[in-house]
């Protein structure tokens, strides 16, 4: 800041109060006329000092003053009501007034902690179960995918086509059938009782009717599952060929009953 500006700032109040010698007043006004910063400062102070306190108090609108006490008392009542409400809530909870509250809260906290622990354990158990289930599903999906690969026997690869192929080739040994059955989950339902019975009746007995006989024998007692069929076939020579016409008849039968293959595959 220039010296002249500093002097102007320091003498501003005296300038506005008119308490400076005339010469000094003239010099300061001349400086303000040439210095925009000091001119702004002077204008600002004129504006700020321009309101007389007594005149301002006399100008206060009476109507607003008359309404002051009603407004203040109402605002205080509102504030009091809010405070009372907050105090009441605290007082209700205050241990001195509710001696049972602390033990009750402690008990509630313990119950909550136990319940939380229990729930956490349950959650872990459920999650473990879900993980096991997911693993099992994954395993089954992998097995299913393997079965659908023609190189792995393709037992389930396009089931209908597979049965048709079996009928067309006419060659299916007991060993090949066992290999395919072994790849299935043991609980897989191959035939229900009625289907097995119809199959037994449709296929003639004899050396070439080993499988139908086995199936029929089981079917009379109920549905046949892969595991049981495998066990029944276990006593047979794996090289035994199931005659083409039997395979074709079986394929035809199953294709008619199960366009997409045996149930559960």
């Amino acid at each position: 800041m220039k010296d002249a500006c500093r002097a102007f700032t320091e003498k501003l109040d005296a300038l506005l109060a008119g308490s400076l010698p005339e010469a000094e007043t003239g010099a300061l006004r001349a400086h303000a006329a040439a210095c925009p910063d000091c001119a702004a400062l002077l204008a600002l102070q004129r504006r700020l000092a321009g309101v007389d306190a007594a005149a301002l108090e006399a100008a206060v609108p009476e109507i607003l003053l008359d309404g002051m006490w009603p407004r203040v008392s109402e605002a205080i009542l509102d504030a009091d009501a809010r405070q009372r409400s907050a105090r009441a809530a605290w007082n209700w909870l205050a241990p001195a007034r509710r001696p049972w509250l602390v033990p009750a809260l402690a008990a509630a906290a313990i119950v909550l902690a136990l319940a939380t622990g229990f729930l956490a354990a349950e959650l872990r158990r459920v999650e473990d179960g879900q993980r096991l289930l997911a693993r099992e599903l994954s395993r089954q999906e992998r097995a299913l995918a393997a079965l659908q690969q023609p190189a792995a026997g393709g037992l389930l690869a396009a089931p209908t086509a597979r049965w048709q192929a079996a009928g067309a080739d006419g060659a299916l040994s007991v060993g090949a059938l066992r290999a395919r059955l072994a790849a299935l989950p043991p609980g897989t339902v191959l035939l229900d009782a009625a289907e097995a019975d119809r199959l037994r009746r449709a296929l003639p007995a004899g050396p070439g009717a080993l499988l139908p006989a086995a199936l029929g024998g089981r079917a009379a007692e109920g549905s046949l599952r892969a595991g049981e069929a495998l066990r029944l076939l276990g006593s047979l020579d794996p090289d035994t060929e199931i005659p083409p016409e039997r395979v074709a008849a079986l394929a035809e039968r199953l294709r008619g009953r199960h366009p997409a293959g045996p149930r559960g595959w």
């Binding site: 925009p36 910063d37 702004a40 400062l41 204008a43 102070q45």
Partner: peptide, 10 residues
Amino acid sequence: ARRKLAGQLR
């Protein structure tokens, strides 16, 4: 403060 205010107003 006055200087700063006057400058800001300008």
